[in-house]
């Protein structure tokens, strides 16, 4: 916890960005660009529908 508090936000951001870039590069090497886009789009709309289903289910349990 102490380490986290002492780390400057800019350094944390830079590290997060670096990790994301590295993961992105690895994904690009494994997947054709089209496939990656398709997965991204499908996830957003599908996740939104899932989110509604979960909230509705939660209300029914009350």
């Amino acid at each position: 916890a102490t380490t986290t508090l002492n780390a400057p936000q800019s350094q944390v951001d830079a590290l997060m960005s670096q990790v994301a870039d590295e993961a992105g590069l690895e994904l690009n090497m494994d997947l054709p660009t089209g496939a990656e886009t398709a997965i991204g789009s499908s996830t957003k709309a599908s996740q939104e529908q899932d989110e509604l289903s979960q909230r509705l289910a939660a209300l029914r349990q009350n």
């Binding site: 089209g34 398709a38 709309a45 599908s46 509604l52 509705l56 289910a57 029914r60």
Partner: peptide, 24 residues
């Protein structure tokens, strides 16, 4: 054809949401 997978997945999720909405 390039949208088959996401369309199929979206329809499944919408169907789930349809049942949840009808229930509520």
């Amino acid at each position: 054809p390039d949208k088959h997978e996401r369309a199929k997945s979206l329809i499944e999720k919408m169907n789930g949401n349809l049942r949840a909405t009808r229930g509520r």
